[in-house]
């Protein structure tokens, strides 16, 4: 099918203002927005956007698609077009743009530091883990650090969404020595965390579910 892409362009070396450039590309309905972008790139090789795995596992290609933060390689052209005829691509909101669709990821990766993003292994850990507990780690451990949650979810407080996900993943880990202190590091009251976790499942491209405060309300 023929698809019109409107891609937000901005090169600080020469542009004063961002502008939308139109590309008309030929792609299959089952192909992804990333495939469409790669076609556009061949038309204009100066177009900049991140990509690598093309299978929703590396987190590189997060952009705003028709106003919604998402992974370009996970969004099928057919479904994106259905939303309004053209596909509009912009950089992730709440991130500083460096060029075209490329945003500054340094603050994003640095934001993880707030939650001491590693397991502080308990001295007496014996290498075993209850399989049920291990299963609970799986959800948050599938986070690909794509940044979509930081772009799409507002949480009050200084710790950013992706860092909260990391913090919650570590808080669930029985190997970790910090225990209850993990929740304090996140500096967000439990009721807000519960709301966050619910919203995350809706907005995260991996649909991450976190078993936090289950059964309570």
């Amino acid at each position: 099918m023929r698809v019109t892409l409107k891609v937000s362009r901005f090169d600080p070396a020469k542009d004063r203002q961002p502008y939308l450039q139109e590309f008309v590309v030929e792609v299959g309905e089952k192909q992804t927005v990333l495939d469409a972008l790669l076609h556009a790139w061949e038309v204009d090789p100066t177009l900049s956007f991140r990509r690598s795995c093309r299978s929703a596992i590396c987190g590189s290609c997060a952009v705003s698609i028709n106003g919604r933060p998402a992974l370009a390689c996970q969004t099928l052209v057919g479904s994106a077009v259905a939303e309004g005829g053209v596909i509009t691509l912009e950089p992730l909101p709440h991130f500083r743009r460096l060029k075209d669709l490329v945003v500054d990821l340094e603050p994003f990766f640095a934001s993880l530091q707030a939650v001491l993003p590693w397991v502080v292994t308990r001295e007496d850990h014996d290498g075993l883990m209850d399989p049920e507990v291990a299963r609970k780690l799986e959800g948050p451990a599938t986070c690909i650090l794509c940044g979509v949650c930081d772009a799409a979810i507002e949480v009050a407080g200084e710790v950013k969404p992706a860092a909260l996900v990391k913090g919650l993943r570590l808080a669930l880990d029985p190997r970790d020595a910090l225990g209850a202190a993990r929740l304090q590091l996140m500096k967000v009251p439990p009721e807000i965390l519960r709301l966050f976790v619910r919203e995350l499942t809706q907005k995260c491209p991996k649909g991450i579910k976190i078993a936090f405060g289950e059964g309570e309300s």
């Binding site: 590693w118 397991v119 292994t121 850990h125 290498g127 075993l128 883990m129 209850d130 399989p131 291990a134 299963r135 780690l137 799986e138 451990a141 570590l170 880990d173 190997r175 970790d176």
Partner: peptide, 20 residues
């Protein structure tokens, strides 16, 4: 594998809690 386990890798586990 056991070094990675100590570092925090969330391996899938057997019913006895070992790395599956």
């Amino acid at each position: 594998i056991m070094e990675l386990e100590r570092m925090g890798v969330p391996w899938t586990r057997t019913p006895e809690g070992k790395v599956a």
